[in-house]
């Protein structure tokens, strides 16, 4: 049985709640006594993915599962999807709007930064339907 599971709702309409799912999950990891370097990597990756879900996906969900040997987080949105995943992975590439960039997001560092901090990153996307991003961090 998993040590912990929870589904977070990621609300794109309330800018005050940006990063709330990551902060909440980070507290869970601390309560469980997960090693600090793992917490840091998970926090960074989850925060980036949460922001992506908001600014590109228009909100969605994050399903977290902690198992004995890994942490898995699945993000799901029903946004426009990613046309070219390989291109989206490039440092500096971004489709973020001017408005989003003014908020300090959308520098094209999100996905590469996630990749840097996780053991496994999987992106499933159908243009027009939405995106599923799954990250796994080994414990």
């Amino acid at each position: 049985m998993a040590l912990f599971t929870k589904k977070y709702i990621i609300d794109a309409d309330n800018s005050l709640s940006y990063g709330q799912a990551s902060s909440n999950f980070k507290k869970v990891l601390k309560l469980l006594g997960i090693a600090p370097p793992i917490i840091k990597r998970t926090a960074i990756a989850m925060y980036e993915a949460e922001i992506n879900t908001i600014i590109h996906g228009g909100g969605g969900t994050a399903q977290v599962v902690i198992e004995d040997d890994h942490i898995k987080i699945m993000f799901e949105d029903h946004g426009p999807g990613i046309a070219d995943i390989e291109q989206a992975m490039q440092v500096g590439y971004s489709t973020a709007s001017h408005k989003v960039r003014e908020m300090g997001f959308g520098a094209g560092l999100g996905l590469p930064n996630i990749q840097k901090n996780v053991s496994e990153l999987k992106i499933d996307s159908t243009p027009g339907k939405g995106t599923k991003v799954t990250i796994r961090i080994a414990l």
Binding site: K30, L31, G33, I66
Partner: peptide, 15 residues
């Protein structure tokens, strides 16, 4: 902050 030194006990306590 940690609930228990053992991660399983901590998870059970958290639930």
């Amino acid at each position: 902050l940690t609930l228990d030194a053992d991660v399983h006990t901590a998870a059970e306590k958290m639930a």
